[in-house]
Amino acid sequence: MNTAGTPGESAPYQRLRELGIVLPTPPKPVANFVTSVREGGFLYLAGQGPLEPSGIEHSGKVGAGVSIEEAYGHARITGINMLAVIHEALGSLDKVRRIVKLLGMVNADPTFDSHPKVIDGCSDLFVAVFGEEIGRHARSAVGMGSLPGQITVEIEAVIAVRD
Rank of each mutant, 00 (worst) to 15 (best):
A108C: 14
K117I: 02
E39Y: 06
N107F: 12
G40C: 05
E154R: 14
V100Q: 10
A138V: 04
S123L: 12
E133R: 14
N32T: 13
A75V: 11
G79K: 09
K117W: 10
A108R: 15
G145M: 06
A128S: 15
Q150W: 09
R139M: 15
G79Q: 06
G91V: 08
I68W: 08
R38G: 01
E69D: 13
N32H: 14
G63L: 08
A157H: 07
P116N: 10
R76F: 02
F130K: 01
H115W: 01
E132H: 02
G41T: 11
G79P: 06
D120A: 10
C122D: 01
G49K: 02
A157P: 04
D124R: 10
F33Y: 15
E57N: 04
G73N: 13
L93C: 02
L83V: 08
L147M: 06
S36R: 02
A46K: 02
K95Q: 12
E57M: 10
S114P: 01
P29I: 07
Q150C: 07
H87C: 07
A64D: 11
V127S: 09
V153R: 05
G49C: 04
V129H: 11
G149Y: 06
V30L: 05
V30C: 01
G63S: 10
S92V: 08
S140N: 03
I80N: 02
A84I: 15
D113E: 08
T152L: 01
L102Y: 14
G55T: 03
E52F: 14
D94I: 01
Y72F: 15
N107Q: 10
R98V: 04
R98I: 05
I56T: 13
V153F: 06
V85L: 10
